[in-house]
Design a protein around this nucleic acid. Structure first.
Length: 153
DNA sequence: GCCAACGTTGGC
DNA sequence: GCCAACGTTGGC
């Protein structure tokens, strides 16, 4: 089973928004970074676990757990000229951007902050989240790191 | 294929 | 709101 971390800005779409969705499920649209796309398109499998991460907010960190409920399919927002993520270069016959559906599993009992993960950098060597200059919004997490992070809860 | 200019991300 | 780091674009 694969483990991942996905970032979202809580003011745009937070863990509570996911929880409130009728089926507790959301298409993870709008990703326009090739590396992140490749992870979603090529590597994410149904049932994989996801750390839901809040970015660009007062207390950046992991706030919940989700699962991949549907594997990759073309991102429809790329075809919609009215959408802010519209990409004229993505052709429905040869789509450039893909997404997965993410399903709410649970909120953490507390936020595991970026700060405390950084403070234990030796324990989390190789974790993409704390790699210098990291800006990926979708990234893999090793099984060992997953376990180790969750034990902080 | 190089690289300067530009836009975006996201912590602080 | 600042700005470092990074990805993308496009001229050459």
């Amino acid at each position: 089973m694969g483990y991942w971390l996905m970032k979202s800005e809580p003011e745009e779409f937070g863990i509570v928004d996911l929880k409130k969705r009728p089926k507790k499920t959301e298409p993870w649209d709008g990703v326009r970074n090739y590396q992140a796309r490749n992870f979603m398109r090529d590597d994410m499998k149904k049932g994989d676990k996801v750390f839901f991460y809040h970015s660009n907010c007062k207390e950046p960190g992991i706030v919940g757990i989700a699962t991949i409920s549907r594997e990759a399919y073309p991102d429809p927002t790329a075809f919609d000229p009215k959408d802010s993520h519209y990409d004229p270069k993505s052709d429905p016959d040869n789509p450039r951007w893909f997404l997965v559906d993410v399903k709410f599993e649970r909120e953490l009992t507390r936020t595991i902050t970026l700060k405390e993960i950084k403070d234990q950098a030796d324990k989390f060597e190789g974790l993409a989240l704390i790699r210098r200059g990291n800006r990926l919004s979708v990234m893999p997490v090793s099984a060992a790191h997953w376990k180790s992070i969750l034990s902080l809860e």
